[in-house]
């Protein structure tokens, strides 16, 4: 079932045309990545879906409801953790629910426990490591009541080892809750490892130049990084990116 549908979206900033006739769909329970070079307009797509910007042309629907210009229709995890420094971890992960209505601390506590943040429930953000902050930010997005989560390069600021850790952790969580996720990255391996489908974005102006179905089943093991198929995927994606 189609959850999110982006139809012929066009957006310019003054004379700078960033998106042109962009269309794609995300199905319920699917993990879709948007892969594109820096400055290609990935964050702009999120700002449009999130209602922060209005499209010049085209429409965005979420479960058959038009959501362009409507803030709060999606759950969001930004590139920086963006936790409120005066809130404890527990209060921070509840923020998304609070904004939309009712907070449920019990579920939040359980989730923190599972994420290894149980002992840090009452810690403030400056007492957490970078990876822990990202976990908290993701749990906040996961607990928010909206039906789809947008993640904007959530791991790009982390070091390689922490990033691998976080990717594995994200997959575990995804397997358990099966949320619908739209994930922005410019890391090819990350996109292959995590997603069901990859949308390759060409830049200036951005549109989907190729759609790539990831041929690996679930649950995924770390071992696939060394799989021959994995390298093959990487090569063809690289190729698609290069040719645009």
């Amino acid at each position: 079932m189609i959850q999110l549908s982006v139809n012929s979206l066009t957006k310019s900033f003054d004379s700078n045309r960033v998106l042109s006739n962009l269309s794609f769909q995300v199905n319920e329970g699917e993990f879709v990545s948007i892969l594109g070079p820096s400055g290609s307009g990935k964050s702009t797509i999120f700002n449009l879906i999130g209602g922060m910007l209005l499209p010049d042309e085209g429409s965005i629907t979420l479960g058959n409801v038009e959501i362009s210009g409507k803030r709060g229709s999606i759950s969001y995890m930004p590139q920086t953790p963006s936790l409120m420094p005066w809130r404890t971890t527990l209060q921070n992960v509840l923020l998304g629910q609070e904004i939309m209505g009712k907070a449920d601390p019990e579920t939040a506590r359980k989730m923190l426990q599972k994420a290894g943040l149980g002992d840090y429930e009452n810690a403030f953000p400056h007492e957490l490591s970078g990876g822990m902050k990202q976990r908290a930010a993701f749990i906040r997005a996961l607990l928010s009541p909206q039906p789809i989560i947008l993640l904007d390069e959530p791991f790009s600021a982390l070091d390689e080892l922490t990033r691998l850790d976080m990717q594995k952790w994200l997959l575990d969580i995804w397997n358990e809750h099966k949320p619908t996720i739209l994930f922005v990255t410019h890391n090819i391996e990350e996109a292959i490892y995590l997603s069901d489908r990859i949308l390759i974005l060409g830049s200036k102006p951005a549109k989907v130049v190729q759609e790539f179905k990831v041929p690996f089943g679930r649950p995924r093991m770390e071992g696939i990084f060394l799989d021959k198929n994995f390298l093959e995927c990487k090569r063809s994606i690289h190729h698609a990116l290069k040719n645009h």
Binding site: F46, G50, G51, M52, R71, G72, S73, I74, S75, Y76, P78, T80, S82, M84, L95, G96, E98, I99, M100, S144
Partner: peptide, 21 residues
């Protein structure tokens, strides 16, 4: 700006933006 952006994306109204941020 990043905190404000998160609050707005998450659907915060003017009042929530003031009281919570």
């Amino acid at each position: 700006g990043e905190l404000r952006h998160y609050m707005l994306m998450a659907g915060a109204g003017r009042g929530q933006l003031f009281w919570k941020l």
